[in-house]
Structures are given as C-alpha cells and as structure tokens.
Design a protein around this nucleic acid. Structure first.
Length: 280
DNA sequence: AAGGTCGCCAACCGCTACGTA
DNA sequence: CTACGTAGCGGTTGGCGACCT
C-alpha cells in the first residue's frame, strides 16, 4: 500500500548525487521551500524521484546539519536515548540538534554498538552481558577495598568519578556497568513487583559509565517479588549530603493491574557505614 | 605494487502511518 | 468505511577509500 515507485525503471536517476543536482535542489528549496516532494523533481529539473530528493535534502543538504565527528558528549547522549527509545533514530535525532537520523543510525551501527559490545554491554538491552563476566572479580578488583564508598571518602570518590581518567578506567574494567543492588531498609507490600522512582536533588544516577541519567535525575528502580532490593548501575554521592534521604514513589504491579502510588512516599537513608558488602 | 579485506556512510528499499477523497 | 497517495521511518545495500598482507 502506498508504495512509491522510485528508480531507473521510470527513467529516473539513482545513485550518488552530483554537485549540479545538489545545486538545483538547494536552489529550488530556497525559493519554494521543502515539501511536495512528488512534484519537486519535475519543477526543479531533476531526474530523480521525490523520495530521493527528500532524503538528499534531509540527510545532506539542509543548512542546519552539523557535519563532522560526533563529540564524546553526543555519543553519550545517543547511548542514553537509545537505552530509553531503542532504534527510534528520528526520535533520537530530534534531541540532537544538527544530526540526522541516518547519521546517528550509521554512527551507532559502526562505532557505538561495537564499543558497547567490546565493553561487554548488550547494545539492545544496555545491560551488562553477565554471561561474559565474572562479576565478583570485577567488583572486587575495581573497588580494591571496602573503604571506597565510606563517607569519609565521598569527596575523593566524587573527584575521582568526575575525572576523565577514572571514567576511562571504569569503561575498561566495566565496573560502572555492573548492576548493583542495595538492600533498602523499608517495608513494602509482599508478592508484588515494584517499580520505584527516586526523586532527590543531590543524587545523580548513572546508567552507564559517563553520562548522567537524562530524565531530571529521576531513576527507575525495580525490585522483584517481595524482596526489597533496588538495583542501579552506580550512584554518585555528593559530599555535602551523607547519608542521603531518598523519597520514593512507587508503582505496584500486581498481576495485570498497575496501580500508581505516587501519594505513597517512602523514605530511607543510605547508612553512613555503607560498604561494598551492602551491594549484592 | 597489487590484490584482498574492512569500515564508513550515502543512498535505496520496503514498510507503516496518516491524510484525504 | 475503503482505497489511494504521500511522507517518514528503520533496515539494508553497495561504492569507495583506507589499511593490511
């Protein structure tokens, strides 16, 4: 349904665009604007189908396109958005000014995806490939000792976490991509799956080694069954707040019914003597 | 120097969504 | 409601340059 014939069967040109064709298309659109792609080639004097013209314009000729290499920040944004949106390239492109969906898709398939795979991360789920890892050895080697997360070391940890060198190290040893679980001391309904969101100004959560979580520093946690474990990738603690009160709002999923419980705010604190032993 | 391989990326293909008659 | 046309999207392809042997 609605398939538009496009190609040399209709005497239309295919393949790479010449500078002359680009010039014709750009000039026409500057005067008449983009759109009406079906009639555009004829009016612009191009032996191309409208579809080809639209793609050439949107992916290459548009004046607001930012060309050149993707920055580190752009790559991290793409990873974050992909973890939420999946292969919705146009939606991702909509949040990256000057980048096209095609460009992002190509960059994902040729660079980012391979980088994630190299780091042991499943590029579809964005989760650590547990089948490839010996988590206990990774955690122990990354942390070296239990004092890493002790409150007295939080400032140092903050500084370290902000340093490019450590981030690279973390990427290499995959520590930050390992999921941790914190046993929160709260009471909860049993036999329910619970999705919790944490709202806390002083908490920044990372769903990958280098980029802050995108949605207003809210982080979705999930616990299975009646257990009260909340898993997350890593948490950066700020030096001025320790322990940190965390306000939770919950969505309880019981069978097929999903019940919002945003009026049901819970609080717990990360204890001062938090150590690696608290992560399971 | 020549042939083979690999990676990148522009462009195409096929499908779906949406608008309209 | 249905059929059709169009725009847009995501997957895939193929050409080309860089690199390797």
């Amino acid at each position: 349904m609605g398939k538009t014939p496009c190609g040399d069967k209709n005497g239309l040109k295919k393949g790479p665009w010449t500078p002359e064709e680009d010039q014709k298309l750009s000039s026409y659109i500057q005067i008449h604007g983009a759109g009406s792609w079906r009639n555009l080639p004829k009016n612009a004097g191009l032996q191309r189908c409208g579809k080809s013209c639209r793609l050439r314009w949107t992916n290459y000729l548009r004046p607001d396109i930012k060309r050149g290499r993707f920055s580190f920040e752009e790559e991290e944004i793409i990873i974050q958005l992909h973890s939420v949106l999946g292969n919705k390239w146009s939606a991702i492109a909509g949040r990256l000014p000057g980048r096209t969906d095609n460009e992002i898709k190509n960059h994902w398939n040729t660079r980012i995806r391979k980088r994630l795979v190299r780091n042991g991360i499943d590029p579809v789920t964005h989760l650590q490939r547990l089948d490839l890892l010996d988590l206990s050895s990774i955690i122990s080697s990354a942390l070296c000792n239990q004092s890493f997360l002790a409150p007295s070391n939080l400032l140092d940890a903050q500084t370290l976490l902000n340093s490019e060198m450590l981030l690279q190290n973390l990427q290499q040893n995959q520590f930050c991509n390992s999921p941790f679980q914190y046993q929160a001391p709260i009471q909860n309904e049993s036999n329910m799956m619970t999705n919790c969101s944490i709202f806390q100004e002083n908490l920044t959560a990372y769903s990958n080694p280098t980029a802050p979580f995108m949605s207003d520093q809210n982080l979705n946690f999930q616990s299975m069954g009646g257990s009260q474990n909340f898993s997350f990738d890593s948490v950066r603690l700020t030096p001025e707040t320790s322990p940190i009160p965390l306000n939770l709002s919950s969505t309880f999923i019981n069978g097929y019914n999903e019940i919002e419980r945003f009026d049901d705010l819970l609080e717990f604190e990360i204890p001062e003597d938090l150590s690696i032993n608290d992560f399971v």
